[in-house]
């Protein structure tokens, strides 16, 4: 209890490790509020005060011996799982799943989907086991960009434009590095081939999956049509712009009508429409044709009405009184 550092064995040793910061060696015994943080870049643990001390002035290399990765304060976080390996795997899987977000209905056959899942799993394990990380990461990025471009070509185009003007993530990190490193990085970034165009001219999307359906962007919304495509097209008249008759001149120039937004053309169109609406409707033919469909033998209806008439209720209407 008093000297936990001298104890031997697996589990107690882990407990001891977790209680002493590997950077400043301060222990929880002295500082009960001590909090350990990790950075998903290298998953080395250190206490909160160390993170503050080392990284508050910008990105800096990891203080653990042998680890040269550049870390940034913003990305430090408390670990979720006790086992850091699990923590890392979960992070990787989350990232991969974000890029490979296809579902079964996106593929033509089930076999294609299964092949796709296998490829995804392979990529994941490559990253977890650190096999061929560089190449895999690049392909992953390319695939993500290609997906984005496919969904919305405008966004991809805009991003390539802004990349050329604004400094990228990588170049900003370089600012704090030594001169030699900076030189090497700038040289490499200077002649990076454009990831969007490969040698044979077709776009390199990182991964190609057989049977993957082409994603189509949703159609842009059409302007709203309140009549849902219907329109009134008169067959018996053509509306004129103006009709000159004496009895209309007064209301045509009436300031009260004009101020109220009254348009004399509305009157014209309504009057003309009413003049001919029903012009070619022959009630005698149409009503009979209509009622024949509904069914209704008149004599039968009369008989029924006579029998029903003895009751207090109307046949076709509920009596309020």
């Amino acid at each position: 209890m008093s000297k936990p550092a001298h104890r031997a064995g697996g589990a107690p040793k882990a407990a001891v490790d977790s209680d002493i910061c590997p950077v400043c060696k301060s222990s929880r015994y002295l500082n009960p509020n001590m909090k350990f943080l990790v950075n998903p870049e290298c998953y080395h643990k250190m206490c909160e005060s160390c993170v503050d001390r080392i990284f508050s002035h910008g990105p800096a290399p990891c203080p653990i011996a042998g680890c040269k990765r550049t870390l940034r304060k913003m990305r430090f976080r408390e670990q979720t799982f006790e086992d850091l390996k699990v923590e890392r795997e979960v992070d990787i899987r989350r990232r991969v799943a974000k890029v490979f977000n296809k579902r079964e209905e996106d593929f033509e056959t089930l076999k294609d989907y299964n092949d796709y899942l296998e490829t995804v799993e392979e990529v994941t394990w490559n990253l977890i086991l650190k096999i061929d990380v560089e190449a895999t990461e690049r392909r992953l990025r390319q695939f993500e960009e290609a997906q984005k471009a496919e969904l919305n070509p405008n966004v991809a185009r805009r991003e390539t434009q802004s990349d050329s003007s604004a400094p990228s993530d990588a170049s900003r990190v370089v600012l704090k590095k030594g001169a030699t490193q900076r030189k090497a990085l700038s040289a490499s970034s200077g002649n990076t081939p454009n990831p969007y165009s490969s040698q044979d001219g077709t776009e390199d999307t990182g991964f190609t999956f057989r049977g993957l359906k082409k994603r189509t962007a949703p159609e842009p919304q059409k302007p709203f049509d309140p009549y849902s495509g219907w329109s009134v097209e008169p067959q018996f008249y053509i509306l004129q712009d103006d009709y000159n008759v004496e009895w209309l001149t007064q209301s045509k120039n009436d300031i009260q009508h004009l101020a109220g937004g009254y348009n004399i053309k509305d009157f014209y169109s309504q009057a003309l429409c009413e003049a001919f609406s029903g012009f070619g409707v022959f009630i005698e033919d149409e009503i009979v044709a209509r009622d024949r469909q509904v069914s209704g033998d008149e004599t039968l209806a009369t008989q029924m009405a006579a029998t029903a008439g003895t009751g207090a209720k109307d046949v076709r209407m509920d009596d309020v009184f």
Partner: peptide, 19 residues
């Protein structure tokens, strides 16, 4: 109203400028 509309058109027709 229909009568008014028809009247308007007839007047324009009489003046020779009905559509």
């Amino acid at each position: 109203n229909g009568l008014k509309g028809g009247h308007l058109e007839m007047i324009e027709m009489a003046r020779g400028n009905a559509n």
